[in-house]
Design a protein around this nucleic acid. Structure first.
Lengths: 196, 196
DNA sequence: GGCTTGGGCTTGACAGTGTCTAGTTCCGAA
DNA sequence: TTCGGAACTAGACACTGTCAAGCCCAAGCC
């Protein structure tokens, strides 16, 4: 009667992703995940030590997807500035299309990366892409690499966060307008750097 | 025997602020607040309809403090760019010195501003300061005001958020280094705009 | 005076949570 | 056939936010 042997772990992760996508981050609960997976409230504990471990696994997958999206986005471009802009657009789109997932990836009280190697490794792999791009931009613009990393990351992360938390809703009505505004901000940043 | 008539509301807010400062945002609970205020677990409900209302009141106070800090910081400067930089530094310092309070101000799942006039008004009053500064910067730099608002706010908010969530810990060790890096990022942004 | 009203507070309940401890069931190796 | 362990269930515990009653006391009115 068992549907398949070792896929409850995967089922739990998928149920978790569905749950936060549908109900938001605060709608996540071990027991609701178990209910959606069709198992007892204790079954998930056989595959994850605790609630945070499930979230850490989700965070790791999120960073891998973000990294993949970023790489796919920059492939079409050769100019360092254009590549950086492409990555920024991918970052914003990932955040706006997966709001709860994105939030979870950046909430240290939910997943403390120092105790979850998978989450930390995922984050690092996405960071590496940014670091490499920033190096080329820094070389061309004459800025320090660390400062390019810091400003570029902060810019797109701030855009994403403010939009996800609704802080820009009063000035940007629909999601198309938000995307356009974010792209314009990214363009301005890149152009300022280009002409530095 | 009553210490004073109508100060339990204030006591509850102070207890809440102490609690999140000490235990973080996730350490906040109605019952712990009541315990710290020395009253029964239901007493707070006599002054606030629910948990979210306490948080909304705290958020409102936070934005007022942020606004005051910003105004105090820009008073010493006359150049529009310098004033914008001063506000950015004040923003970062507020966030780093009051991490839980700052996070709460930007977490829409905890406080939905559309149902809490006090929180919305507080946020608006801080936003107004930014809007005015950005107007002057836009006039001097030839950029659109909305784009200056968006990029400046996103930059400092991204800096604050990434630092608070520990995402920059691996590259910025202590808090002095973090402050210096944030200031450098703000300076770079302002200087890029100056020479646009 | 007595009586009512209502604000401020307490007590007790309820459903929901994360997680601990004990089972139970089943399958493969000895 | 027995054993062992992996996968899972069931029950409990302390905690949460909030609803429903009730208690106490001062103010207002007869």
């Amino acid at each position: 009667m068992k549907p398949a042997p070792e896929n409850l772990r995967r089922t739990i992760l998928d149920a978790s992703l569905d749950l936060i996508a549908a109900e938001g981050l605060e709608g996540f609960s071990m027991r609701e995940v178990a209910r959606r997976a069709g198992v007892s409230h204790q079954a998930p504990y056989h595959h994850f030590p605790d609630r945070e471990a499930i979230m850490a696994a989700i965070v790791a997958e999120g960073f891998q997807r973000l990294r993949d999206d970023s790489i796919a986005a920059i492939e079409g471009e050769s100019d360092p500035y254009a590549r950086m802009q492409a990555m920024g657009r991918a970052y914003i789109r990932f955040a706006l299309h997966n709001p709860a997932h994105f939030k979870l990836m950046f909430r240290s009280e939910h997943v403390r990366e120092d105790r979850h190697d998978d989450a930390r490794a995922g984050a690092q792999s996405a960071y590496d892409v940014l670091l490499q791009l920033a190096g080329h931009v820094a070389a061309k613009s004459g800025q320090r690499t660390e400062l390019v990393v810091l400003t570029a990351w902060s810019m797109v992360h701030g855009l994403a966060t403010l939009m996800l938390e609704g802080k820009l809703d009063k000035v940007l009505d629909d999601s198309a307008e938000r995307l356009a505004a974010a792209d314009a901000a990214i363009d301005l940043y890149a152009n300022l750097l280009r002409r530095a």
